[in-house]
């Protein structure tokens, strides 16, 4: 794809969205049969699946903690998830993302209820279009709730950034590539407690405040979608 001359034309973005508009979201709770909890999410062209196993016995044993459960996260991208084939398996980037996702989810969990155990979270990106770590966090939060693991709150995440000098939310590939700033934010919306904040590029102090405010409003919308997905899973029963 060539760099377009303008990323924002007449206040509309390349895909026709307004600057403060999210991409369409679809979340399915319990998408996998064999996992203890799972979720599938589509955020625009991102397609991500999350699976949760546990709490279960920690292997290797010596890594278990005597007074709380350990949370393990593994974020990976499928070889076909991007334009150029990605070599499968963890690389520098996905190891880092696994770490920040783990730290974004951890504050929401009551890990002290399951000493010596481990909770495994697997996040598999099937199709990527910028913002896979935030989509992964959104899916993982739903999957954890679906597994019945006690949580203080769900975790919602969205990226904000600066494109053509405009603050935008939920960047897509072209904006991520040619925009000036990208800032993924994850939080527990109920208390507005931020659990992940990264930034690539520059914001002035005033821009940062506006961007963070926009991210918080975006997270509220995603939070609603997550809650709806969890409720929908059980709303259908009673018919067969």
């Amino acid at each position: 794809m060539e760099k377009p001359e303008q990323l924002i034309v007449d206040g509309k973005r390349l895909d026709g969205r307004a600057p403060e508009e999210l991409r369409p979201i679809k979340i399915v709770a319990g998408a996998l049969g064999r996992a203890d909890g799972s979720a599938y999410i589509e955020m625009g062209n991102n397609k991500v699946i999350a699976a949760v196993y546990g709490p279960r016995e920690m292997h290797p044993r010596h890594e278990a903690q005597p007074d709380f459960a350990v949370l393990r996260c593994r974020y990976t991208m499928a070889p076909f998830s991007v334009e150029e084939r990605k070599r499968p398996g963890p690389d520098r980037r996905s190891i880092e993302i696994s770490k920040v996702i783990r730290e974004a989810l951890q504050p929401a969990l009551f890990l002290e209820l399951y000493p010596r155990a481990v909770i495994d979270v697997f996040i598999e990106v099937l199709q990527a279009d910028a913002g896979t770590r935030t989509a992964g966090i959104n899916a993982a939060a739903v999957a954890l709730a679906d597994a019945g693991i006690p949580m203080r709150d769900l975790v919602s995440a969205v990226a904000v950034g600066k494109v053509d000098n405009t603050i935008v939310i939920d960047l897509m590939k072209a904006e991520d590539q040619w925009g000036t700033t990208d800032m993924p934010v994850a939080m527990m919306p109920r208390k507005k407690a931020i659990t992940l904040l990264q930034m690539d590029g520059h914001f002035t102090e005033e821009e940062f405040k506006r961007a963070l405010d926009l991210a918080m409003r975006g997270c509220e919308q995603i939070y609603e979608a997550q809650r709806r997905a969890l409720k929908e899973k059980y709303a259908v029963g009673g018919t067969e």
Partner: peptide
């Protein structure tokens, strides 16, 4: 007071609990 799990609210007098729909056996 908040819920920690996906489940059904059970209120008996002044006692509130949520019956989980999913979860491990403790």
């Amino acid at each position: 007071i908040f819920s920690t799990v996906v489940g059904l609210v059970d209120i008996k007098g002044r006692r509130i609990r949520v019956i989980p729909l999913q979860g491990p056996y403790v």
